[in-house]
Design a protein around this nucleic acid. Structure first.
Lengths: 190, 190
DNA sequence: CTTTCGACCGAAAAACGGTATTGGTCGAAT
DNA sequence: ATTCGACCAATACCGTTTTTCGGTCGAAAG
């Protein structure tokens, strides 16, 4: 990709994170990148377009990180554990960086919802595959892989919440491990 | 409690559910209860006060329902199952009734947040006790009761979400049962 | 031919001022 | 003890004007 384009994306991401999407004007971006506003439009067709590419970049990095984590774990159980803890720590970092953005009501931006949906599809696929792998290797005993992967998704999503609203002293890795213990072993005494 | 007071609360609840908290005026309430506005202020010191009592009443009914459900189940496992499914079905009813309210940004009303917090405390206590009971009866095998009850809380809370935003065809009982199966049995093949 | 930019446009948001609502009070009547 | 009409102050509302901002265009620079 064009070098100038990358630079604009970087600057924009910075400004979005600091001031939010709405408060950041095209002038702001242009000025900080030492360009006229019109010049920025030579590289991007709209403000939304810039935002979309910022999101796209971040998502890509995120999924890369998750794929690596899963790849480097040995058993199905450890793959799932690696997936979940990586997901949580990365989200924790994001939450600090993007705190201003989450305040904004950019839920209305349809493509954000789309990205979110895409991510959940991705997540669902990963979990489903790992579950299936586990069943084949006789590690897991689950009825319906689809249902269970959704349940795991929901449980994980629950862990997210505190990151964006609650207290400072929240250890997402510890919390993840507790949740994973329940998911893998249940609470019934066999 | 005063009979008139109860009547006002009933009427107010009805109006809040239909028009939302902000759109409902004290005049509306007074008129529907066949009183002058000032007379309503004889029983309640503010509009917020009425709202608080409406919430308080609903919460009380909710907890009563949950307590009954738990009481009528026989084993610790079934008590937890009863708790969760009752919780979900009740919330489903609420979500229909209160859909107008949830649209409003009454998050800013601090006492709503307080009620929510109180409810979570209550829920946490119930779950903790049921877990402890299960451990004593050798039904459950959990390390830290406090941690696990929080995990169950989080997992349940995740099931809530679709009620307030998502599709029509969502069966909270079925979803609850799937989640409970994971929680009780885990997914590991022993 | 690629890149930059100043000047400009239209739509949407902010500023504003004046009017109407509405939550809440008070003193009198019952 | 209870009810209510009259009243107040804060704020919501509304129509208008002004400003801001995303986006376009054509010219010019290299």
């Amino acid at each position: 990709m064009d070098d100038k384009k990358k630079r604009i994306i970087e600057i924009a991401e910075q400004l979005f994170a600091q001031y939010g999407f709405l408060k950041t004007t095209m002038e702001d971006i242009a000025k900080k990148v030492h360009m006229g506003k019109s010049s920025v439009y030579y590289y991007f067709k709209s403000k939304d377009d810039i935002f979309a590419e910022v999101i796209r970049k971040d998502t890509q990095i995120f999924q890369q990180k998750l794929d690596d984590a899963v790849k480097n774990a040995n058993t199905p159980e450890n793959k799932i554990r690696a997936y979940v803890t990586t997901r949580m720590t990365h989200l924790q970092d994001l939450s600090k960086f993007y705190s201003t953005l989450t305040d904004e009501y950019l839920d209305h931006y349809l493509f954000v919802e789309e990205v979110r949906k895409d991510f959940y599809d991705y997540e669902n696929t990963v979990l489903k595959n790992l579950l299936k792998e586990g069943v084949e290797q006789n590690c897991f005993d689950v009825g319906d892989v689809v249902t269970i992967s959704r349940m795991i998704s929901i449980a994980i999503k629950g862990l997210e919440f505190p990151l964006f609203v609650e207290t400072k002293d929240y250890d997402p890795v510890e919390e993840s491990n507790d949740m994973l213990d329940v998911i893998f072993n249940g609470i019934t005494n066999h």
